[in-house]
Design a protein around this nucleic acid. Structure first.
Lengths: 196, 196
DNA sequence: GTCTATAGTGCGATAGAC
DNA sequence: GTCTATCGCACTATAGAC
């Protein structure tokens, strides 16, 4: 038997979400989170640089999914179409079984400005990463930035809808719809035909 | 003679920028900022909810400029064109005399993640405000959100270029260029005719 | 205006795994 | 012996309560 149980960050993360959801983020101390899984406050801060990170740590898979989607786009694709592929790839990560968990986590974030700021920062970093990847694929630098930002906006909008009360569609379906709207957005006004 | 000098928040704000720029954000305490203008730490926190707000407080004019630009757009304008008007209106606030000050302030923000998070939050709030205003003008809700986010992205990109080393063009000129790129972004297919 | 809880850091000590 | 996860303690600054 090992001296320490494995998966310490995951256990802390899970405990943090539970406590934040029941007591509220500000009403929960780092000490309480740590002690609820038999660790000390000092150990908590060894795994997370700050308290908020307990909700955001370990989103590598998420970013990787976007990048994999970019790679899956055909070589001649426009930045927007490449980004669309990236967004759909990331959306595929969120199967319907995850919806309840996502709702719970987002409810905590939505109640606290400090957590919202961290979430925005993560999205901004994601957009920067995607823009870099688009440029590496030869996209115009400015187009890359604009497309990457549009992509993260689309994902955010679709995700919010996915966890909205009563929503039944999959995240991929919703994302496809939002992407369609994005494509029509810059088109001139009159006589537009849209499929829905 | 007044009992207190007027413009306390402004003097604190100015002192904070100077100290952050020379010493660094984390190395500067709220107490130091307050005492450098003859006030106590307690007074600092009565004017700003937290230390970061010393760099962000009082951006009402900025938001108002966006909204005024929206109102200036013709009634039949698409969301994107309305937003373009809003972005240009805000860009007009930043005359060339402000460029040096903007560079200094942004240099401080760029060095500190906590300040970046706050800036992103302000932009996100701005985007939400603009989306609401677009919806109030009858725009499709989803288009409103997408256009508002695109608008704040465009402003951010143009602003970053405006304060880039060696840049001489006005913010309005740069903004116009970035908006042009945005218009072409979602119109990938060749031979599209656009009115301007 | 004072008092205090909490976030977060730095450093040293411990104790098992290898 | 080395490595690493953990603990313990002292400490500062923020921020809110009183």
């Amino acid at each position: 038997m090992a001296r320490w149980e494995p998966g310490t960050p995951e256990r802390l993360q899970q405990a943090a979400l539970e406590l934040f959801a029941t007591r509220g983020y500000e009403q929960t101390t780092a000490r309480e989170i740590a002690e609820s899984v038999g660790l000390t406050e000092r150990t908590f801060f060894r795994h997370f640089t700050d308290k908020r990170e307990a909700l955001f740590h370990g989103q590598d898979l998420f970013v990787q999914a976007f990048l994999a989607g970019l790679d899956a786009a055909p070589p001649g694709a426009t930045p927007i179409e490449s980004i669309a592929s990236a967004v759909q790839s990331a959306a595929s990560l969120f199967a319907d079984e995850r919806r309840a968990h996502s709702r719970k986590r987002q409810a905590v974030i939505d109640k606290n400005p400090a957590l919202q700021e961290r979430e925005l920062h993560k999205f901004a970093n994601l957009a920067a990463t995607l823009a870099d990847a688009l440029r590496a694929r030869g996209a115009d630098p400015l187009h890359a930035t604009l497309a990457a930002q549009a992509g993260t906006s689309v994902f955010g909008i679709a995700f919010a809808q996915w966890i909205a009360k009563g929503e039944r569609r999959s995240l991929n379906e919703i994302t496809a719809d939002v992407l369609d709207e994005l494509r029509t957005l810059a088109a001139p006004a009159a006589g537009r035909t849209r499929s829905r």
